[in-house]
Design a protein around this nucleic acid. Structure first.
Lengths: 126, 126
DNA sequence: TTAGGTGCAAAACCTTTGCCATCCC
DNA sequence: GGGATGGCAAAGGTTTTGCACCTAA
């Protein structure tokens, strides 16, 4: 199962590298299609899986129904606007002590945590 | 749009009141069907929406492709086993200072946060 | 009586998969 | 050449919806 470089895979990665919008698979598809009109959705989904397996991107499963994607980066927190649904990164250090604290209280083996803030983004505050 | 009490709605609420398992819509359907064999999935989904609108239950949208449900309670943290997928509540106070801290750093209007710990549950540690 | 709720089935979505053609190494 | 990848379309799985019938108030 040796991986190959293809223009489809590169196109998808390029879209994700050029945005901070945490797009859904469908949004990625629309964007890549501008460069590669005949690309199929199946290919987008397959490559998103492959890219995540290879550690190049992260699948965000914070919403429940739709997956969103971002290029791999240090674990960080997210913000979701309760009105418009947009997701953005929060520039705030990840508090690893939370894991230890929760581990002590529960006896579970905890390796990480995901945190999503909710509220109103700047545009939606008006 | 006055709400009515129906045995279907009561049955769904009863299932959620009697479990800590954060079941999916499908699991709720299976459980309710023991009491109300002719209930349909559409009715389950419709009632889950209604119950959430009325504040009786909460739809958990942290991680995963499937929505999970629980009866309404104080905001609290969750744990998801990375191996078996089970979700459980964490008995740990919600740190409201996190919201203030994030608000200061970002200028966003933050009203709450959702936190999900990940790791291995007791059963899966073996 | 009557507006809201139910059951059933079809539709709508999102994601995965099978198949064969195509491409990369 | 040969295995990995792509395009297309069909299949899968979850959730929503249209409609005729039912039922709580």
């Amino acid at each position: 199962m040796n991986r190959r470089e293809t223009k489809q895979k590169e196109g998808i990665l390029k879209v994700l590298s050029n945005t901070r919008a945490h797009p859904t698979a469908d949004q990625i598809y629309d964007e890549v299609r501008k460069d590669i009109p005949r690309i199929s959705k199946g290919t987008v989904y397959r490559n998103l899986q492959v890219l995540e397996e290879d550690g190049a991107i992260t699948e965000l499963r914070l919403d429940g129904t739709l997956s969103r994607y971002e290029t791999k980066q240090e674990n960080h927190y997210h913000f979701r606007c309760e009105k418009c649904g947009r997701v953005s990164d929060i520039d705030m250090p990840v508090d690893k002590k939370l894991d230890q604290r929760a581990e002590k209280r529960t006896g579970l083996k905890i390796s990480s945590h995901q945190l999503e803030f909710r509220g109103l983004c700047k545009e939606c505050q008006n």
